[in-house]
Design a protein around this nucleic acid. Sequence first.
DNA 1: CCCTGATTCGC
DNA 2: GCGAATCAGG
Length: 201
Amino acid sequence: MAWTEERVERLKQMWNEGHSASQIAKELGDVTRNAVIGKVHRLGLSNRVTPGDAAKPAAKAEPAPEAPKAEPVAEAPAAKPAPEPAEEPAAAPVEEEPVEAQVPAIPARRRIVPAGQPLPPQTSANEISPEALENVREVEKTAKRLSLMELTERTCKWPIGDPASEHFWFCGLAVQQGKPYCEAHVGVAFQPMSARRDRRR
DNA sequence: CCCTGATTCGC
DNA sequence: GCGAATCAGG
């Protein structure tokens, strides 16, 4: 199918609205995302401001053979439109991003746990947001209940139940890209440092 | 592996 | 002009 004015118009609109090339392709029909991207470029659109895409150096295939000079670019600290958490990691030198807890929040009830493995993380209710916890409970009802052997790189590895009992399995839902857990579990597994300090005592 | 956009180049 | 193939990155 050709690029009629109508379709081009639709393309422009959607592109400017922030839809991805594949989304646009699906919407228009009879075109691949490649076709859309190609058209976008020929139309001179392209570098729109995609949320989540702070700064993308678009150089690669044909790097200028010139000596790479370090330019003293006055780069703004990239004011991210993140109106979500009003959390401030105190006045700490931000190295990368608010350090996340790499390990599921372990219950502080270790002392009453008989010898053995630590309890599965989800068995405790600490300072995680109630909504998140509620969400997790709901999600766990639909868990795939995978065994260790059934886990793959794209299945949520959040443990559910007592590892020593028969009623133990892994969530198994689709993981959030990059993360080891599904969305719901990522929500309770990764806490900002600020929220973790001084739990005990 | 899923996805994103960017670029190249034969058509 | 078109877009598949490919590349680069998340």
